[in-house]
Structure formats: structure tokens, C-alpha cells
Design a protein around this nucleic acid. Sequence first.
DNA 1: CTTGATCCCGTAGTTACTACGGGATGTAAT
DNA 2: ATTACATCCCGTAGTAACTACGGGATCAAG
Lengths: 145, 145
Amino acid sequence: MAIHTDVTARDSQESVTLSIGALSKRTGVHLETVRYYENIGIMPAPPRSPAGHRRYDREHLKRLTFVKRSRELGFTLKEIRALLALVDGGDYTCGEVHELTVSHLHDVREKIADLQRLETTLAEISEQCADGTIPDCPFIETLFR
Amino acid sequence: MAIHTDVTARDSQESVTLSIGALSKRTGVHLETVRYYENIGIMPAPPRSPAGHRRYDREHLKRLTFVKRSRELGFTLKEIRALLALVDGGDYTCGEVHELTVSHLHDVREKIADLQRLETTLAEISEQCADGTIPDCPFIETLFR
DNA sequence: CTTGATCCCGTAGTTACTACGGGATGTAAT
DNA sequence: ATTACATCCCGTAGTAACTACGGGATCAAG
């Protein structure tokens, strides 16, 4: 499936147009963020109404949903650009997507490991100085060494 | 222990002075970061040599070490400011430190939980599209929905 | 006394947005 | 037709925590 699905003249609702506000509400992406995505080239510049208001169609809606989902999965905008480039090219394979995903998964696992190490240390600290009125907390002492 | 330990005239090495580069090497904090910390008030402005070069002493070294350690534990600069304010005040108690630490620990645990949810999803995805030459990857499909 | 390392400063770039301000439209009710 | 209010426009600046850059001064060693 290419990102630009065929919306032929035979389609039942052939010209869906959404204002930026409507698009924002449907996707849950902030209005300013939509404009931001346009500025940085992640979303294409949509046609404008005579007065200059942006008019979005179903393709825009799909693309923005894609971006939103990918962000929720923790992909950076840079990674999403790569994903979109594949998809826009139209001839991507599952393997290419797999590669990006695995690489991202690796990053996520590293972050988890880092945070778990932190968690352990912080938990130890907070046990050490749980009872509260002692001045000269040992935690503070260790931070100075 | 207050942050400003007494370095009396009787101390064996009474005037340690470090250039910004030396301080940077000893603490592992980038030189530019040291200046940055000075700009934002986390490190005090040190005295200068006649030519205007910064001269640091043991107190600076201790403070910067403190900041470095705290950063490594994932505290934000804002949190570190709070910690330093307690310490600078000199009359902090273990309980106050405990509070900040527990709050931070809570944040860390939330982040871990978030990332673990991500990890699960990403692992599922990468299994689904592991074998590589199929076009129209199912993962991409789901992102469009 | 020359060479190379180090230092100075201010500014801009990074990531992914969010917020602001002031003016122009769109839409609905009267 | 007018009024009122929501929505839209744009560009700029702010957020966190730095990093990088550029061009000039100074220091330390040989």
C-alpha cells in the first residue's frame, strides 16, 4: 500500500476537507505541532482556501496518524523521516522496516537498563536516609567524594 | 558538613588553583559545560587571574563533583539546584534530601514502565516482520489505521 | 622568541515541540 | 446585516541541557 491511496472519483466521500483545527482534534496532534511538521517537511504543505486557511484531506489525516503512532512508539522525528521515505518510495520491504525497528528496540532496551541501574542506586539512597531529622545526610556526603 | 569546608591556614595544601581545563579533566565535565553552569548560577563565578583566566579551588572541585554525580543519577538541573540550596543553607536534614530522592525515584520508575511497554510493542512488531523481503509490511499497515 | 595548547567571550545550533501576540477570517445567532 | 466569538494566519521566542563555532588573547615549554 502506497501512502497515497487512490481516492478515485467513484469514492463515496470524494472531497473531505479538514481545517487545521479539525485535523488536530482527529489526530490528537496539537495544531501548532501540525504547522511545525509542515515547516520541517514531515507533513506536506496542503492547499489553501481563498483566504489562506489550510485544507487537509484524507491523505493528510493518514500521514499524520502515522507520525503520531510512530512518535508514541518512541521513534524520533529523524527515524520517522526514514520510515516515511521508505513508505513514500512505495517499494519498501518488511526487512527494511524491521531493521529500523530493531535498531530502535535496541536503544529502548539500553535506556531501560540505564534507568534500572539508576533505580537501584536511588532506592538504596532513599532507604539510607529514610528517617528524617538527621542532619548531614550520608547521601549528600557521598555525592561530594 | 557544609559545602564550604574550612580550609584553614594550617592546611597542608592551602592554595590549590585549577584552570578551567584542569577542573574539567578532573571532574569529567566539559569545559563549556563548566562555563554554562557558571552562567546559569549552578557554579559560582570563580576569581580570575590578572589576564582574566578562571582560577578554581578545592571548593569548586567538590561542588562540581556533586553536580556531576547528581546528573549521573538523573537529577535535572532544577532538582540539583534544590539540592544545592539545601546544602548551601547548611541546615538540611536527611528527610529533606529523602523527599527529593523519592520523588525522583518515582519519575524514574514511571519512565521505566513506559519504556517497557514500548519494548513489548516493538518486540512484537519486529517479530512480525522479521523475514524480510515481503513488501507491504504489516507494521506499516497498522500505523496507518 | 616562537609554537602550540589553552583560555576568553558571545552566539547559534541541537530535539521536539509549546507559547505568545496581534491581526485576519469563518460561522452562527439575532 | 451586524455582532460576537471561535478559529486561523504568521513569525518569533522560550523550553532542557548542553555542544559547537569563530576569532582573538594568553600561557608554558623549548
